[in-house]
């Protein structure tokens, strides 16, 4: 019963919150409409995509979100420095990384993480073999990008969407 009413509880909760934000009040009227929107939205998504979004490790997901926020802030400053100082030894380039991640939702999340972080851009992905083509603004810093992406982002995503 619960499952038929709320096929995607997380999505429905998110829709409800977005509705409250958009109507800018938590009065009973907007809240009721928001409830209807959230329920219908969940149903509509269940009709479109049969797969269920499930998060296995909420604590790990929160920690990943914290890491990502810190990384975004740090690489913002790093990229701003690159753009303003114009170091001559900066070297940009493409990078091939083989991912073990296969779940489409997890891949979408990884794409959002990598693109939202300034300095790295997701260019192409080969779904059959898992090769990811990445463009990095500064390769000269000596960071091991492959290891960073594997351990910092891919490993937690593998556990969350296991």
């Amino acid at each position: 019963m619960m499952r038929r009413l709320l096929p995607h509880p997380l999505i429905s909760a998110g829709l409800f919150l977005v509705w409250l934000l958009a109507s800018r009040s938590a009065a009973p009227g907007p809240a009721l409409v928001g409830l209807v929107v959230a329920l219908l939205g969940g149903q509509a998504l269940a009709l479109l995509a049969p797969g269920r979004l499930r998060l296995r490790r909420p604590a790990l997901a929160l920690r990943l979100a914290g890491h990502v926020a810190a990384d975004i802030l740090r690489s913002n400053l790093a990229v701003a420095r690159i753009l303003l100082l114009r170091r001559p030894d900066r070297r940009a380039g493409f990078l091939h990384i083989r991912l073990t991640l296969r779940d489409p939702q997890a891949l979408a999340l990884l794409a959002i993480i990598l693109t939202a972080t300034p300095g790295t851009a997701w260019v192409d992905h080969d779904a059959a073999e898992g090769w990811l083509l990445l463009h990095v603004l500064d390769l000269s810093g000596g960071e091991d990008w492959e290891r960073i992406i594997r351990e910092r982002y891919e490993a937690p995503l593998l556990e969350i969407f296991a």
Partner: peptide, 24 residues
Amino acid sequence: AGSLGLLRLRGFYERLHAPTLGTS
């Protein structure tokens, strides 16, 4: 700084990184 990158960076794939400063 990000938008200045649109002017300063050479090559399309480098300029692709420029707007992410403003959006994050």
